[in-house]
Design a protein around this nucleic acid. Structure first.
Lengths: 202, 202
DNA sequence: ACCGTAACGGAACACCCCGTCCGTTTCGTT
DNA sequence: AACGAAACGGACGGGGTGTTCCGTTACGGT
């Protein structure tokens, strides 16, 4: 069985995915399929031919980000100092989520989202368990910390809205620093990234 | 000019407001006007007769919650210990917002929301400035804390979703405790409310 | 160059939303 | 009891979304 698509079909598929990634990142999950089709210069039916449902499109569009997430966790695990590794993971994950609203939403939602994404996410989070245990053992991470606190922090991070992506990332950066402060076992006050003027928009 | 409504009109108006409060609290701001009309056993036109726009309905529906917010801040200001007062404000505000998704959204949004609500919110937050200053002076609140951090925390709190309101409140409680940890000037690790199993729904 | 078929895209379906018009009902005053 | 005005609500037009149908286009192997 040759699973090669016709050249134009593959082109379209790639273009749709690229456009979808951009659109979902910038505008969130509820960008209409129609709009994506428009930007990809394709009819709506073509999108549905390549992705039977909107959810399938989401899953594929976010696959890349999903692997980035596990890469981030891998980096954290590889760090010599487990606490620094943990901080790295939190900071990078939050930045990633701040840069891609759609992915952030997909990552923290389980209900209608794809089973595939949820499974990947759970696998990634479970990898974190090791790092968490080591950071606790090193006496840097509070003992009553649980993995769900990561989900909590990521969901909370998702609540941060701002006029521009740049502002959102800046606010998210400060927020991550705050969360890390609160996760410390024997807290030491550390300087924070600069505050962000929040026009509270969108 | 007598501004008394006909008895049935006043009844309907009250019923619509009551239903709207419940609906917005449970399901967020984008409950269709029609749905509210349905639950109030009223035609859509009747809702529009009493509230020219959806935003007007929102403003009136949330007036109560808005005053509760200032009351909470007033309580905080009245506390003997400014840090404890500050904690009280944060905890109560977050609980309130967790109990009423719609209000939480309205409170942290400025753009399309009513000018009235935004003004009330800003007034309330500005009241907090005094408490913040005193808590800093008492050496309990970190010096680099800014008022925007309250908005940041409230927005983040809004990101917390859960299967049931009870779970949401529980998660929010833990989140508030975490944020307060990070706001301390000379942090002392304090026990946290219990973690919440997050099925990550809705 | 030819032609079968894979792939396309506009139109259409079913559903939901908003806000308004207008014929009908109900209040409350005489 | 009776009647004018206030208030009601079903139905309508305009718009948007996810998804599918089907007549048309264009690839690519011969």
């Amino acid at each position: 069985m040759k699973d090669r698509l016709r050249s134009d079909a593959r082109d379209n598929r790639d273009r749709i995915l690229a456009v979808a990634r951009l659109a979902f990142a910038a505008d969130g999950l509820d960008v209409p399929i129609r709009e994506i089709a428009r930007r990809a210069e394709v009819g709506p039916a073509t999108v549905y031919r390549h992705f039977q449902t909107k959810e399938a499109l989401l899953t594929e569009a976010f696959a890349e980000q999903m692997t980035t997430c596990s890469a981030v966790v891998a980096e954290g695990l590889a760090a010599a100092d487990p606490w620094r590794g943990f901080c790295h993971v939190i900071e990078r994950l939050m930045e990633l989520h701040a840069l891609d609203r759609g992915f952030a939403r997909a990552f923290t939602s389980a209900l209608p989202a794809s089973a595939g994404l949820a499974a990947d996410r759970d696998r990634t989070l479970r990898l974190l368990l090791d790092l968490v245990a080591r950071a606790k053992a090193a006496g840097r991470l509070r003992r009553d910390f649980v993995l769900e606190d990561v989900s909590l922090a990521l969901m909370a991070n998702e609540g941060i809205r701002a006029a521009t992506p740049e502002l959102r990332v800046a606010a998210s950066r400060r927020f991550a620093a705050l969360m890390l402060q609160s996760f410390q076992a024997d807290p030491v006050a550390a300087p924070l990234p600069p505050p962000v003027r929040l026009p509270l928009s969108r």
